[in-house]
Design a protein around this nucleic acid. Structure first.
Length: 334
DNA sequence: TCTCCACCGGAATGCTTGGATG
DNA sequence: CATCCAAGCATTCCGGTGGAGA
């Protein structure tokens, strides 16, 4: 059934991209000066998740590499590499400059100096989920490096610029802004058709079923492809020769909770205990939560530490906190 | 309106850890 | 092997905030 699992993976970049010609051209145009050895304006991609921002950024870069012989590039996910050090390290990694950089005896500014000293081919850096970057001042430092080209990706433009402060905002005011809208249902269906064609045995799924998948994904291509992947896996498991609507119904909630499950696996014993209490209670006050938590584990941490755990879990979209001070409650996010 | 105080989150500080260094 | 050092974790202290009740 599954002939090429790779094309159903979230990180797969297809060799042809549908329904995003305008955005690709816009980005290619913004990067065009590089082909003439000039400096490009920073590009800024915004839009909801699953709208193809990451995919188009990498795709446009691949195409650029076909036109420019000598160019380096690196993709950085700021959600994972959120600190100044980690981001810089990842960027240096892309040009193999990380030799002799060790955690100790390496103040972060040494990393920046080394990046400044770089005088090789033009270097394009994609900073995905840039709003998650802890130290936004890093953007200013990166911006000033001459042969470094930035492609920034974030969900909402306003939120990022609110964090940047005036000096930085004006610095990036001239950047090339590219907005992405959600895919509509028929666009999602044709994206899914392409993935099914590349990845699955032909005839295993037809358009009406793909419409159900697309509908459930609500414009999010990542979710849509996740559902298709899960359904195909189920079909394999059952030894079925095609993907039925029943299998899709089974796959929809599963695929939607897959990301959450991955996050849950990353939690420590204490964090997991807190999450379980919140999930079981449905809604709970901080003091009640702490009380139950102290009963749940052998050596409970302090309240302050619990707050750190909770904010981390909010960052992972596992829970939400309602209210700011007194009367705050926590709820699980389904 | 004023006073509590539950709760948040920043800052200072100490302890632990893991990889390079001698 | 012992040593060193910054990251990361945890604790303590504390100022700020805003809802509840006098």
């Amino acid at each position: 059934m599954i002939e090429n699992a790779r094309v159903l993976q979230p990180e797969f970049i297809p060799s042809e991209v549908e329904h995003r010609d305008g955005e690709i051209n816009h980005l290619s145009h913004a990067l065009d000066p590089i082909t003439r050895g000039e400096r490009a304006e920073a590009a800024f991609l915004t839009g909801p998740s699953g709208a193809g921002k990451t995919c188009i950024a990498q795709f446009a870069l691949t195409r650029l590499r076909e036109n420019v012989i000598d160019i380096n590039h690196q993709y950085v996910n700021c959600w994972e590499d959120y600190s100044r050090f980690k981001t810089l390290y990842r960027i240096l990694d892309g040009i193999n400059e990380t030799l002799n950089i060790h955690r100790q005896s390496t103040p972060t500014d040494v990393l920046l100096d080394r990046l400044r000293d770089y005088d090789g081919a033009p270097y394009v850096v994609i900073l995905d989920e840039v709003d998650q970057l802890e130290d936004k001042g890093l953007l200013y430092d990166l911006y000033r490096i001459s042969n470094l080209e930035l492609v920034l990706i974030a969900n909402r433009e306003e939120e990022l610029f609110a964090d940047l402060g005036n000096r930085l905002s004006s610095r990036f005011s001239s950047c090339e802004r590219i907005r992405f809208d959600q895919y509509n249902e028929s666009e999602l269906v044709s994206i899914l058709e392409a993935r099914a064609r590349w990845g699955l045995t032909s005839g295993t799924i037809s358009t009406p079923e793909l419409q159900i998948v697309a509908n459930a994904a609500a414009g999010d291509a990542r979710t849509a492809i996740g559902i298709l992947r899960t359904a195909a896996r189920y079909a394999d498991r059952d030894g079925a020769d095609r993907i039925s609507t029943d299998l899709i119904s089974e796959a929809i909630p599963e695929a939607k909770s897959e990301i959450q499950r991955k996050s849950l696996d990353k939690l420590t014993e204490h964090q997991r205990c807190l999450y379980d209490i919140i999930a079981e209670a449905g809604e709970i006050t901080p003091s009640e939560l702490y009380e139950r938590y102290t009963d749940c584990v052998a050596h409970p941490k302090t309240k302050r530490m619990m707050r750190n755990y909770l904010s981390k879990m909010e960052h992972y979209n596992l829970i939400v906190g309602n209210g700011k001070t007194r009367g705050r409650t926590y709820q699980p996010l389904s």
